[in-house]
């Protein structure tokens, strides 16, 4: 049954591959037929971005060393950088209610079910079905998805669930007196062992406190560009790798 499911995913992914051909052709043409001035402009933009990023890394190195020393003081295990695999999105499930995407990495690349998927801006979702060369990713905004997060500012643990809207996550069971405000960054807490800790998930956009209700209603906007990102990253956890 399992291998049948895998086979069916590989066969049906071919449809997505075909439906992706026009945008592939457009990309190809875009790469070939680009003017010199635009290339120069792009090059300049990338150069300045690179400069900004390397400046940030300089600061990061010192912070990392400091963090390492502090962790040693606490006898905690050292946080090593996660290994990632770059993948490309080839299709989106056609039902607007169903927030699933198909990407072009599968079992032969070491992908496993439950693996976390990121884009350059934040956590996107997790792998739910793995085929030979393709896999299906359930996005964090799907109405059947929920993930453990914490407020970056003070470490309060919460659960963020999808509501079927690409721009909204809802936080469950937020006490009325909890210290949370608009603009707070939510990062994955790593509880539950499914998602690696510390990746940005969402930003709080709305806090409605009604004393008549048991819990406050808190909405957040996912950091990941769920309907824009074409290139995504698959994160490998160290113990599950291989």
């Amino acid at each position: 049954m399992h291998s049948l499911k895998k086979k069916s995913l590989d066969i049906t992914s071919q449809f997505y591959w075909v439906s992706d051909l026009p945008s592939k052709a457009e990309q190809w043409a875009d790469n070939r037929l680009v003017s010199r001035s635009r290339l120069l402009q792009e090059n300049n933009a990338l150069r300045s971005e690179n400069l900004v990023l390397s400046q940030k890394i300089l600061k990061n190195a010192a912070l990392e060393a400091e963090n390492f020393r502090l962790r040693q003081l606490l006898n905690a295990s050292e946080a090593v950088e996660d290994r990632v695999l770059i993948a490309e999105l080839i299709g989106v499930a056609p039902d607007p209610q169903l927030h699933k995407v198909i990407i072009n990495r599968g079992e032969v690349h070491g992908v496993y079910a439950g693996q976390a998927v990121l884009d350059a801006f934040g956590l996107m979702g997790q792998v739910v079905e793995v085929g030979e060369r393709y896999c299906v990713v359930l996005l964090v905004t799907d109405s059947t998805h929920a993930l453990p997060v914490k407020v970056n500012r003070n470490g309060v643990r919460l659960v963020a669930e999808g509501v079927g809207n690409l721009y909204e996550l809802k936080l469950r069971h937020v006490a009325n007196t909890l210290d949370i405000g608009v603009g707070d960054l939510l990062v994955s807490s790593g509880l539950g062992g499914r998602f690696p800790a510390g990746y940005p998930v969402a930003e709080v956009t709305e806090v409605t406190i009604d004393q008549g209700r048991a819990f406050a209603e808190v909405k957040a906007r996912p950091m990941a560009k769920l309907n824009r990102s074409r290139h995504v990253l698959l994160v490998f956890e160290r113990e599950k790798e291989g």
Partner: peptide, 17 residues
């Protein structure tokens, strides 16, 4: 027909599929 069923549509035109 299957290709039409999954062809990428902009979200606002999804209902026209």
């Amino acid at each position: 027909a299957m290709l039409v069923a999954i062809a990428p549509f902009a979200p606002e035109y999804q209902v026209l599929r």
